[in-house]
């Protein structure tokens, strides 16, 4: 019974590797994008702040699958011929970026205004205040939600299979359609995702506890 799973394991593991690559790219680039936007969202330009707010609002209100479809159809429509991974990857990066931007903005705004007043009173300018006072503290606050965000992003790579990108879930469906051993294969796949995600989950929770203790 478990034989089906074992014989197909190499294929599934290759799928898992693809998932990991996708996840790595999306999480790193998405978090970088979001952090930059989150910092800009606390800046002085009202237009920039408004634009980022709209971006966050729209992307947080629609399903990631829709954004992936958008990526899939938008690139050719604009004249670019990219493979499914790039299309799906860029879509996810933009999506993760929106959530990250909200987390980062929130963390920056949660630094006590009294400290910013104190830093200004010493004659510090915005750059120094951001670097020495705001970001060290905001980073600490932002890490647990960012880790949770990363966890969600990793799980979302599975949805790329719906749009036609080959990764672990796509591979699983291929095998199930061939062998009809749905339970074994999907449970096995769940186990693989669990192995990837659970450590991230634990990391996020460990960091949360550390934060509570230090306050």
């Amino acid at each position: 019974m478990v034989n089906v799973l074992i014989t197909n394991l190499p294929y599934l593991l290759r799928g898992a590797v693809m998932t990991l690559w996708l996840a790595l790219a999306v999480v790193t680039l998405g978090t970088l994008l979001g952090t930059g936007l989150g910092i800009l969202a606390t800046g002085r330009s009202r237009i920039v702040r408004a634009a980022i707010t709209v971006y966050i609002f729209v992307l947080r209100g629609i399903p990631v699958l829709v954004v992936m479809f958008l990526g899939y159809y938008a690139f050719p429509a604009l004249g670019f011929r990219v493979n499914a991974y790039v299309a799906v990857g860029v879509a996810q990066i933009v999506y993760v970026g929106a959530f990250t931007a909200e987390i980062v903005r929130s963390a920056i705004l949660s630094v006590h205004p009294g400290q910013i007043a104190a830093a200004k009173s010493l004659g510090m300018r915005r750059g120094a205040i951001l670097r020495e006072v705001i970001l060290p503290q905001a980073t600490c606050i932002a890490i647990p939600p960012l880790l949770n965000n990363a966890l969600t992003a990793v799980k979302q790579t599975a949805y790329a299979s719906v749009v036609g990108a080959w990764e672990l879930t796509y591979a699983a469906r291929e095998i199930v359609e061939r062998t009809l051993a749905s339970f074994q294969i999907f449970l096995g796949v769940m186990a693989i995702y669990f192995a990837i995600c659970y450590p991230l989950s634990l990391l996020a929770r460990w960091y949360e506890k550390r934060l509570v203790v230090s306050h």
Binding site: R173, M190, F194, S201
Partner: peptide, 18 residues
């Protein structure tokens, strides 16, 4: 923990195909 660390899509597939 199992529900939280595996994609919803796979869970739906499990139910639908299983």
């Amino acid at each position: 923990e199992l529900m939280r660390n595996t994609p919803l899509l796979v869970q739906i597939y499990l139910i639908y195909f299983g």
